[in-house]
């Protein structure tokens, strides 16, 4: 296996009864790559992502994530990846610091490491004044930035982001993407879903799922050429009307 590929998926399939939610998808993601995982609501993105992060058993096919097999080593996958979703990110009833300490503990970091990481995170995000405030009182954009940093606390090889910027204001959305670029630049692989098609352009490569299948996978530039489209929104509209 090439060590350059941190996600390898081959014919991965998930069925619920006789409904095929994910239909034999095949793709690779390279180390340090920003990989956009797009598709309409209900296309199968979340189901596919759940299999890759080790919380849902595939019906058939193969997948290796961060060097571990999704069938046999799901627990090892969880230790080596970060995950953040729009729906659940942090505990609203804990302060910023408490959240960091909590998740640091979950990821098995030592107390001294947690303290060091916590201070660095608070300084990086300029959160000194709100470090002891409840997360629930912060604006969504801040929460999402903290949540992303928390997902990176244990220096995972890959971070999975499920619609991280939904409803976030345009300036914060861009600051969020600068954090993604920074993480990727430092070698972390970023696997991200979004409904903002301008964000699809920020990815190194993009896949588009339609009815459980990956119908397109390439760089944004090549996809635009292939579908004779001016932008990724047009590519998406041409493809996803399946």
């Amino acid at each position: 296996m090439s060590t350059n590929k941190v996600i390898q998926v081959d014919g991965l399939t998930k069925m619920f009864g006789d409904f095929t939610a994910v239909n034999a998808i095949t793709f690779d993601v390279k180390k340090g790559e920003i990989f956009g995982f797009l598709g309409a609501n209900g296309a199968g993105k979340t189901t596919a992502m759940k299999m890759l992060i080790g919380i849902s058993n595939p019906t058939s096919g193969k997948a290796n994530v961060a060097g571990f097999d999704v069938f046999t080593n799901a627990e090892d996958i969880k230790k080596n990846i970060g995950y953040m979703s729009q729906k659940f990110a942090l505990y609203d009833d804990l302060t910023v610091k408490e959240n960091i300490t909590f998740f640091g503990g979950i990821y098995g970091l030592s107390r001294s490491k947690i303290k060091e990481k916590s201070n660095a995170l608070i300084e990086d995000l300029g959160l000194e004044t709100v470090a002891n405030q409840l997360v629930g009182s912060l604006p969504l954009g801040w929460k999402q930035k903290i949540s992303f940093s928390v997902a990176l606390l244990h220096d995972p090889k890959i971070v999975f982001l499920d619609e991280p910027t939904g409803g976030v204001d345009p300036i914060t959305r861009r600051q969020f993407w600068e954090m993604i670029y920074k993480a990727a630049n430092q070698g972390t692989t970023v696997f991200v879903t979004t409904h903002y098609m301008d964000e699809a352009e920020y990815c190194d490569r993009v896949s588009i799922m339609v009815n459980g299948k990956i119908e397109a996978l390439d760089t944004p530039k090549n996809l635009k050429t292939q579908f004779k489209a001016a932008n990724m929104n047009d590519v998406f509209l041409k493809l996803a009307r399946g």
Binding site: A40, A43, Q86, G166, G167, H195, F236, R241
Partner: peptide, 13 residues
């Protein structure tokens, strides 16, 4: 009130 938040581009259109 935000009828299209979290909705994909096709359905939004």
């Amino acid at each position: 009130d935000e009828p299209t938040t979290g909705v994909d581009p096709v359905s939004r259109k």
